[in-house]
């Protein structure tokens, strides 16, 4: 049986990845470790000493609260960036994707291949963060094995819609704005640093619609316990919807771009 088209495209990405894996591992392991020690331990010690911690976080330590969100946020940053410049390179600068379409591969195969390549990146990244979390007693849990796939869904929920945007662009001038005005605000207000109930009501409602909030809730619930099946299914379906919508947008955009 022939190798599926999307897998053949993903093979190329794997070839490229062999050259840059070091950088990715630094991003997946060293960076979350620094954040964990810097913010989790440091700010955590301030919080656990005073303030209204018990009322807001309950029994959870701030370290554990923040650390579990890192699974989702680190993966989000990594795949979002991956779906911007490196993807633009394939469309515009090196034109590798146009070259592919010259072979029997279809634009739709490219969109599906993105699921594999971004999923692979997300797996490496969230796996790295999970290894870091396993170092600390309060986040060492079998739930990490469930949280890694949850973080992969998070990565794809960002990468696929962003890749569709990238595919529709001729220049990269909007890319910094995507990171600054879409990704960064979610990081800051999406429930990573404190529960979204702390936010003003309007912002809280907005947060419910972001993929990051669902991913954080899912990862946190799986690692620390306390997520019931019903809400877990709900979080997963929201993430999958984002991925499906992104994939669909990719197929349309890529087709228009590569076969005008």
């Amino acid at each position: 049986m022939a190798t599926p088209a999307a897998v053949r495209i993903a093979e190329r990405e794997l070839l490229l990845y062999r050259r840059i894996w070091r950088e990715n591992v630094i991003g997946a392991f060293v960076q979350p470790f620094l954040y964990l020690v810097g913010v989790g331990v440091g700010v955590g010690s301030l919080i656990d000493d005073g303030g209204d911690r018990a009322a807001i976080l309950g029994e959870t330590s701030y370290f554990a609260f923040y650390a579990t969100a890192l699974l989702a946020t680190t993966t989000m940053f990594n795949t979002s960036q991956e779906a911007l410049w490196p993807t633009m390179d394939g469309f515009r600068w090196s034109n590798a994707f146009r070259g592919m379409i010259g072979t029997p591969l279809e634009p739709r195969d490219l969109a599906t291949a993105f699921l594999l390549t971004f999923g692979g990146r997300a797996l490496v990244t969230s796996g790295g963060v999970a290894c870091v979390l396993a170092l600390f007693p309060s986040t060492r849990s079998l739930g990490l094995f469930g949280a890694v796939p949850a973080a992969v869904l998070c990565g794809l929920a960002f990468a696929m819609p962003i890749a569709a945007w990238t595919g529709s662009r001729d220049v990269d001038n909007t890319f910094p704005a995507i990171l600054r005005f879409v990704v960064m605000p979610m990081f800051l207000f999406g429930g990573a640093f404190y529960p979204v109930e702390q936010l003003p009501r309007a912002l809280e409602v907005i947060a419910w619609f972001t993929p990051l909030w669902h991913a954080i809730e899912l990862c946190r619930g799986l690692v620390l316990g306390g997520v019931d099946t019903g809400s877990a299914v709900g979080h997963v379906s929201v993430l999958v919807s984002y991925i499906a919508a992104g994939w669909l947008a990719c197929t349309i955009v890529f087709d228009r771009r590569l076969r005008p």
Binding site: V43, I47, G50, D52, P176, R180, M184, F193
Partner: peptide, 28 residues
């Protein structure tokens, strides 16, 4: 506009901390 958008990020950090984290931490 590039310069202007650079103003945004530190302000968002500040706002996020003020809205959510301040209450958790209390006084320093």
């Amino acid at each position: 506009i590039i310069i202007l958008s650079g103003l945004f990020e530190p302000m968002l950090f500040l706002l996020s901390i003020r809205v959510g984290l301040s209450q958790l931490v209390g006084d320093v």
